[in-house]
Write a protein that binds this DNA or RNA. Structure first.
Lengths: 285, 285
DNA sequence: ATTCATCCATTCCTATAGGTTATCGGAACA
DNA sequence: TGTTCCGATAACCTATAGGAATGGATGAAT
């Protein structure tokens, strides 16, 4: 009936990205006619045209665009399935833990220490990733658990445990009109320039694009914009900046997250250790 | 490298469900040796054993269980991709709208009427589904849009617009000790018997299992349990029951939901019509 | 206009992935 | 110890995916 083979889907996606049969063929290390035939095969089976192709141009049809969108996800899912199987078969496989550099709120080493004490602890590989793609790591199985910030990161399809809840603070230049305040409300920050976060769908400010917290802090110091973040993300605070609690901003959660489809047993011990460590750290403060 | 073919994955899943090569072969309409070879092929490629098989028993290994979980999802995704492509190719394809019988809060016909007025309206197929699987319809592309109740239904991977927000009401037999109250708090309902919702992960009461609202209302009338639902789900209220607002229960949202990967253009008009219709209906009340 | 370069489609051939039937061999059980 | 069940193996077959060469449409260049 449907039967869209993984390989064919990979071929399709390569062409959909290159919009060029020849280049796609090179990338896939096969000959170009094989591609032409494969696409025609898929088109016949699905009963739709995927590409409008003259000898000069290749373009996606609406059906092609739909298949690209859904197909990319499906192919990732296949990859994740294979990875998960391989991983689960190897009981010695290290636990892969993804986080943003500087985004651990000081919890990384307590968590690792606590986990190392567990009888069933295994090696932990730490992966540092860019700002927006830690969720991808979890979804496609490149990592087992990750530290995310809700509601910054998109927790779709992930299960999680909250390690810490924190207010959000506005980060202002120390000369800012509100810099002396004990707290502010969101409405008072209307009209300010906010960052556009690179690659983050919700990060829709009006100001220049920033890729990470360090860049953001530079921009704020330069009085080009202001920012609002969970407090732990900006500690220690660079000179020339102040942070003021925002009373009516939704609280932010530092969460330990993992794929819903992950086998809970593999990571239960780690989750337990992280909760324990964060409780302990909270008690100390 | 990985390359787990769709067909092979289908074979694997069939065996994983049947736990019997012979029966799986029948179900797949192929001969049994083909299955044995396919599984061995996958095992070699992934480098893990998927089944422990004696001549007497077949059982999944941990790796097999992982592959089953992730693989089922991946295969669904492939099916959804194929369906989406077919669907998008056919510009005349009807819009498929899934909802629970009685779960439309009276909005179904206003929505359809409003949508029918739109210049780009197309035929709408209405699908009625059981209590818990409307989300599946949206995820695997059997439906384009659906009416769901948050936080009852799991909105993971779905985009949505809220059509109506409502308090939740406790549904009590009219002789219940709290039946005369104007409102109650959750704590006052402690110790009551709650339903277990069939097939709903969060529906974890202690009482008998119920499959739908009608069953629930019967059970409440028979004083076997009490319930708590969005108000519109129990209107009109059968005799012998009362409903009391629960002040501190999280509000419930009637939402129009669709797959995140859906091409927004296809359904934008319908979403607009639904919002319009629900606003209009709210104004009338 | 004519030629040229580009790039997808077609043709033809071959290797092999994936299927078939027949048979084997181990495990439970009477 | 024979019988039954069930997966693995062996031997063979064929549909098809992929390779190489070629064709043919299209836009650009002179």
């Amino acid at each position: 009936m449907d039967e869209l083979e993984t390989r064919e889907l990979g071929y399709f996606l390569a062409i959909a990205e290159e919009l060029h049969f020849g280049r796609a063929a090179v990338r896939l290390s096969i000959a170009q006619p094989a591609l032409s035939k494969a696409i025609r095969r898929i088109e016949n089976r699905l009963g739709v045209t995927l590409f409008v192709r003259s000898s000069r141009y290749v373009a996606l049809t609406p059906a092609g665009e739909a298949l690209q969108e859904h197909g990319r996800h499906a192919l990732n899912a296949i990859g994740a399935a294979a990875r998960a199987a391989r991983q689960a078969g190897d009981t010695q496989a290290p636990l892969r833990f993804v986080l943003k550099p500087g985004g651990d709120a000081g919890l990384l080493s307590p968590i690792l220490a606590e986990y190392a004490n567990r009888p069933d602890a295994r090696q932990v590989d730490i992966l540092f990733s860019g700002p927006a793609d830690r969720t991808d790591f979890l979804h496609d199985g490149r990592a087992d658990v990750g530290l995310l910030y809700a509601p910054f990161d998109d927790l779709d399809g992930l299960a999680c445990e909250t390690l810490r809840t924190e207010d959000r603070v506005a980060i202002l230049p120390s000369r800012h009109r509100l810099a002396r305040r004990k707290s502010v409300r969101l409405a008072e920050l209307d009209g300010e320039t906010w960052p556009r976060w690179k690659g983050v769908p919700g990060g829709d400010g009006t100001g220049p694009e920033v890729a990470d917290v360090v860049q953001l802090l530079h921009m704020i110091t330069a009085r080009r914009m202001i920012g609002m973040l969970p407090r732990s993300l900006v500690e220690p605070l660079p000179p020339g900046l102040v942070c003021i609690p925002v009373t009516d901003a939704p609280v932010s959660h530092l969460v330990l997250a993992w794929s819903r489809r992950e086998r809970r047993a593999r990571i239960a011990s780690f989750v337990g250790a992280a909760l324990e460590a964060s409780r302990h750290a909270a008690g100390i403060r």
